[in-house]
Structure formats: structure tokens, C-alpha cells
């Protein structure tokens, strides 16, 4: 199993632990990730909201490079995924669009190489059974709410999972030995970049999700998007203090949870880089593991 790996800008800064854990976990699962050399930014929502053609062209360059190698792209970041998927779908839908895009990027892209979300690759290509078979340290007793965000499962025509009540991350978490907790905010929007540019709008949106997660009784949140992570983890303190609450809800990339269950050291996965301290959870898991071993 080999994919053209597209980390995207966030994964070399705010989302560095997503990159670290993805690489480690892929290796453990036998998934080969060939990083697209000299990849460029997908344009994110900024290009999408500024110019239609630019939004399609920026990801097309990365797809074209992947296509030269005959590889599908594996994309961890949900935002990069949906923008790249949009390009793939548009190019596939008309020859005229294919021609225009190829002219703008001055490379050939025919729609052969597909954009795949990393979660999709792990759950549906590698498979839950294979992942489960490799679990060394099951996440026993850990209650997890899966937070998919808005871009991973919408629009439904791109989706590999249900747009209202997606299941893939919940099933993955279950395969890791943890307990998935059902909740109603799986696909509520975290406000995206609004949190940076307009926090009076962003923070209430973040707060709603955190409150719902807390109320569900979960120990932590699993996510598949560096922007969601930023908002829920890095801004958890801001959101909490604005509404006079303290959540203390660690947020993990699903790849980090996979790494822990596969027996990879948390530091190697970047878990220590979280803003909301996750060491309590790690300690609890280790203690439970120790008890099981002595028993």
C-alpha cells in the first residue's frame, strides 16, 4: 500500500504532532507514504472564498505530481482533503475544466489520481481488523467522542462517510480498544479560521462543542483536522475563560490514539505538544496496562 503523502502547511507547524503520528502509525501499519516533493499549499478556504479557479488550481499541482507517480493522495488535514477532492471531482466532471486547470498549473492532471482522507485510507484500505490485530496496548476504559468536523464528510457527494452521523472514526476508536461515545456534535462546525480572525464569533462555536463533549461524559476528543485541533485544544483555555468554565478535555488526533494503542511512545507521536495536558490520560492507560500485565 503506497500513497502520495500530502502533509499540508499546518502539519509542519501547529499540527506538527499530526504529522509525527501519521508517519509513525503508517510505518507500523505497513503503509508507505511518499511525501510529494515541493508540495504547495492547497489554498484552504482563503482561495476558495476569493477565486474559484485559484481554489481549483492550487491543489491540482499536487494532484498532478501524485498522478505522475501513479499514486492516490493520502491527506491527513480535513481542509486540505476537501479542497483537493473538489479539484479531483471538478476535473473529472468535464474535459473543459481538465484543460483549463492543466493550462493554469502548466502540468497535466487528468483526474486519475484521487484525493483520499487519511482516515478513509486507514479505516477502509488498511481495515479495522488489520489495525485491531496490531493493537499492543488497547485503550481500555478510555471514553472518546469522535469529532469529524464539517469538511471531512461534507459535501455528501465527496464523502466516504455519513454527513450527519459518521461512524468511521468511532469504529476505529473501538478497534483500538477504547469506548466510542455517541454525541450530537460530530459534524458541527468549530468556526475554522474565524477563531483567528474573528474570535467573538469563533469562541462561542468552540465552546458549544466542548460543552457537548463534556456533557457526553467522554474523557477526550478525537479529531482529524489540524484547524479543529487548534480550536478545540489551543483555544480551549480562551473559550473556557470567556464563558467562565474549565473543561480540561484533552484532544487527540486519531493518529495519536492509534499510535498509543500500537505501542508507540507518546513523545514520538507528539502528544506532549498539546495545550491541554494529556499526560493524565496516558498515565491512566499505562496503569491499567500494568494492572493487566501483572494480572
Amino acid at each position: 500500500m503506497k500513497y502520495a503523502y500530502y502533509p499540508g502547511c499546518s502539519l509542519s507547524s501547529t499540527g506538527i504532532e499530526y504529522d509525527m503520528s501519521t508517519r509513525k502509525v503508517a510505518k507500523a501499519l505497513g503503509v508507505e507514504l511518499w511525501e510529494i516533493p515541493e508540495w504547495n499549499c492547497c489554498g484552504a478556504s482563503s482561495a476558495h472564498l476569493t477565486d474559484h479557479l485559484l481554489a481549483l488550481a492550487l491543489p491540482a499541482r499536487n494532484l498532478a505530481i501524485a498522478e505522475e507517480q501513479g499514486l492516490d493522495m493520502a491527506i491527513p488535514c480535513a481542509a486540505c482533503y476537501v479542497r483537493t477532492k473538489a479539484t479531483e471531482v471538478e476535473v473529472k466532471s468535464s474535459e473543459e475544466m481538465q484543460k483549463t486547470i492543466s493550462e493554469v498549473i502548466e502540468r497535466k492532471y487528468t483526474g486519475q489520481s484521487r484525493a483520499r482522507a487519511l482516515l478513509d485510507v486507514f479505516v477502509n484500505d488498511v481495515g479495522l481488523d488489520s489495525i485491531n490485530a496490531l493493537v499492543h496496548k488497547p485503550l481500555k476504559g478510555l471514553k472518546v467522542v469522535s469529532y469529524y468536523g464539517c469538511l471531512l464528510v461534507r459535501p455528501p457527494k465527496y464523502g466516504f462517510d455519513d454527513p450527519e452521523d459518521p461512524q468511521s472514526m468511532d469504529k476505529l476508536v473501538e478497534a483500538l480498544g477504547a469506548t466510542p461515545v455517541d454525541w450530537a456534535f460530530k459534524t458541527e462546525c468549530c468556526s475554522g479560521a474565524h477563531a483567528i480572525a474573528k474570535s467573538e464569533v469563533g469562541l462561542p462555536m468552540i465552546e458549544k462543542i466542548l460543552a457537548a463533549a463534556k456533557e457526553s461524559g467522554a474523557d477526550c476528543i478525537a479529531t482529524a483536522c489540524p484547524l479543529c485541533m487548534c480550536n478545540l485544544d489551543m483555544r480551549q483555555g480562551q473559550a473556557g475563560s470567556k464563558f467562565g468554565r474549565s473543561y480540561n478535555l484533552p484532544v487527540f488526533y486519531f493518529t495519536e490514539l492509534m499510535g498509543i494503542a500500537l505501542g508507540i511512545k507518546p513523545e514520538e507521536l507528539g502528544v506532549n505538544k498539546h495545550f491541554v495536558d494529556a499526560s493524565g490520560i496516558i498515565k491512566k492507560l499505562n496503569e491499567a496496562e500494568g494492572r493487566r500485565e501483572t494480572a
Binding site: 464539517c150 469538511l151 468556526s191 475554522g192 474565524h194 464569533v201
Partner: peptide, 11 residues
């Protein structure tokens, strides 16, 4: 401008 492009409406 405030629309976050989350696509909930379209879905």
C-alpha cells in the same frame, strides 16, 4: 463573510 463554508445548509 461570516459563513464558515461548513456546508451544513447545502447538505
Amino acid at each position: 463573510w461570516l459563513c464558515a463554508s461548513c456546508d451544513t445548509c447545502s447538505t
